[in-house]
Simulated assay, not measured.
Amino acid sequence: MAAFGTQFTTEMVISRFGDGQWSNLEVVPVQPFSMHPATHVLHYASECFEGLKAYRTAAGGIHLFRPDRHVARMLNSAAQLLLPAPDEAALKRSLQMAVSAVADEIPAYPGALYLRPTLLGTEEDIGAAARPTSKALYYVLTSPVGDYFSGGLQPLRVKVDDQAQRSTPNFGAVKTGGNYAAAMRQVVQAKQEFGADQVLFAPGGVVQETGAANFVLIDGNELLTKPLDGSILPGVTRDSILQLARDAGLTICERDFSVEELLERAPGAEAALTGTAAVLTPVGELVYQGSTIKVGDGQMGPWSERLREQLCAIQSGAAEDPHGWRVPLET
């Protein structure tokens, strides 16, 4: 299968906003858009998106994983960006439509169908820097994906950066391309200088998240992670892992913690990144000010392995779904 996110299905869902209302959701062929050079999103980054998956079970059933949480997050992102957005019911319906339209293209587990709902400001006005767009485009693109770690799951090497910020304060909870663009230079530099896979941003010495995933530290029976204070993305996988850890008897501690505390606890702990694509990925090494600190024994720890396996089993349909996270495809 092609690299993650580079293969697409034949159809997508689309709706346009103008004159104060949204058009009906439509299933159309996947094809390029035509945009005027003055389109709002090209100049003022009026854009947000989501990323979630639909799975085909061994028995042949199809379900989406926690679409309600992704819809809620998209609505929050749109509100922060002052973007018009379809209502909750329409967004949920669009996801169902997008999956149903390409059901035959969904690969078997561990493959999945990755959904990318996207919202763009489309007003043609380069003078609209200080006001929101009056036109918008919403679409759901889908991509058949294989196992994110086709070569095997490997612990990551992560640079800890206590100077740079991933996002502006209180805007980290918005899933917008600008936040990823802001982090990209730091990530590329870390790869070039230290062979790092990612950067853990800790502006002012307070640990936040990486450029594309939330961060958790498991030490003994405690799972420690940054609270949802607006500076980090409210990850759906993060929330799922926290719930499974709570079910398993771990103490969940959502509080600010420093780089100093992280480095002190890391040698006897487990660390991991959580996200839709990678689920839960172990961190084997931290790099801080040029020095390397091994996390635990440098491999995936027992809690990380257990939680990852539990979540994957629920997503694939191989295990019970006690929290109602799987939403069946409507027929």
Score class of each variant (00 low, 15 high):
Met1Val: 09
Ala2Asn: 12
Gly5Lys: 10
Gly5Ala: 08
Thr6Ser: 14
Gln21Met: 03
Asn24Ile: 00
Val30Phe: 11
Pro32Glu: 09
Met35Val: 15
Met35Asn: 13
Pro37Tyr: 04
Ala38Lys: 03
Val41Lys: 00
Tyr44Gly: 10
Ala45Trp: 06
Ser46Arg: 00
Cys48Arg: 02
Leu52His: 12
Lys53Arg: 14
Arg56Ser: 09
Ile62Lys: 06
Phe65Ile: 06
Ala72Leu: 04
Gln80Arg: 15
Leu81Asp: 06
Leu81Gln: 04
Leu81Val: 05
Leu82Val: 13
Pro84Glu: 09
Pro84Gln: 07
Ala89Asn: 04
Leu91Cys: 02
Leu91Arg: 05
Arg93Val: 00
Leu95Arg: 05
Ala98Pro: 08
Val99Leu: 06
Ala101Gly: 05
Ile106Thr: 06
Gly111Arg: 05
Leu113His: 02
Tyr114Thr: 08
Leu115Pro: 02
Leu119Tyr: 04
Thr122Val: 05
Gly127Thr: 12
Ala129Val: 10
Arg131Met: 09
Arg131Tyr: 14
Arg131Cys: 04
Ala136Asn: 11
Leu141Met: 14
Thr142Gln: 03
Thr142Asn: 10
Pro144His: 01
Gly151His: 07
Gly152Ser: 05
Leu156His: 00
Asp161His: 07
Asp162Met: 03
Ala164Met: 06
Arg166Ala: 13
Pro169Thr: 09
Gly172Phe: 12
Gly172Ser: 13
Val174Tyr: 10
Val174Asp: 11
Asn179Cys: 04
Asn179Glu: 11
Ala181Arg: 14
Val188Ser: 06
Val188Gly: 01
Val188Cys: 03
Glu193Cys: 07
Phe194Lys: 01
Gly195Ala: 05
Gly195Asn: 06
Ala196Asn: 02
Ala196Val: 06
Leu200Gly: 10
Ala202Phe: 02
Ala202Arg: 02
Pro203Cys: 08
Gly204Trp: 03
Gly205Glu: 06
Glu209Arg: 05
Thr210Phe: 07
Ala212His: 10
Ala213Val: 03
Phe215Met: 04
Leu223Cys: 12
Leu224His: 00
Leu224Lys: 07
Gly230Asp: 13
Ser231Tyr: 12
Ile232Met: 08
Leu233Ser: 10
Gly235Ser: 11
Arg238Phe: 12
Ser240Leu: 07
Ile241Thr: 09
Gln243Asn: 13
Ala245Lys: 08
Asp247Cys: 03
Gly249Leu: 14
Thr251Arg: 15
Thr251Ser: 15
Glu260Met: 04
Glu261Cys: 00
Ala269Asn: 01
Ala269Leu: 05
Ala271Asn: 01
Ala272Tyr: 07
Ala278Pro: 00
Thr281Arg: 14
Glu285Arg: 12
Val287Tyr: 05
Gln289Cys: 02
Thr292Pro: 03
Asp297Ser: 10
Met300Phe: 07
Met300Asp: 11
Gly301Val: 04
Glu305Gln: 15
Arg306Leu: 15
Leu307Tyr: 12
Arg308Tyr: 11
Gln310Tyr: 01
Gln310Met: 15
Leu311Phe: 15
Ile314Asn: 07
Ala318Glu: 15
Ala319Cys: 08
Glu320Leu: 11
Trp325Asn: 10
Arg326His: 02
Val327Cys: 11
Pro328Tyr: 01
